[in-house]
């Protein structure tokens, strides 16, 4: 499978998991919340800060249908993560084509070696 096809297939899986699969996820409290409730420190948490995001609590502001609201928030989260993470990694990458022990595709630039 070539690079582009692999990446697109992977992205499609991530979008389906977040956009569709998340509706079927367990709504029980997670391990930390459960322990906090059982041992008695759950009330020490503060209300989440309102950052003005339309996707707070994995639901989309103004969308009433629960499935669609959660699905849109999931898709938005995947794309935001992809853009921020992918952008960061693209900026950080080595330009000489070698990451670690991979044979370089082009001759490495001597000044770039660290």
């Amino acid at each position: 499978m070539r690079n582009r096809r692999f990446l697109l297939a992977g992205l499609l899986v991530a979008l389906l998991v977040a956009g569709v699969g998340s509706y079927y996820a367990s709504s029980h409290p997670d391990g930390l919340e459960y322990v906090a409730g059982k041992t008695g420190f759950i009330d020490s948490q503060d209300e989440p800060v309102d950052t003005g995001s339309p996707f707070a609590d994995y639901s989309t502001k103004g969308v009433d249908d629960e499935r669609l609201s959660g699905g849109l928030a999931g898709v938005a989260g995947v794309l935001l993560t992809l853009v921020i993470g992918g952008g960061l990694f693209w900026v950080l990458r080595r330009r000489d084509g070698s990451a670690g022990d991979v044979a370089p595709a082009e001759p490495p630039v001597p000044a770039d070696a660290d």
Binding site: G10, V13, A14, F89, D96, S98, A99
Partner: peptide
């Protein structure tokens, strides 16, 4: 760890 080939993969891993 990052080059032209692995940087997009890393972005995908974060999204996944």
């Amino acid at each position: 760890e990052l080059d032209d080939r692995t940087a997009p993969m890393a972005g995908l891993v974060a999204a996944f």
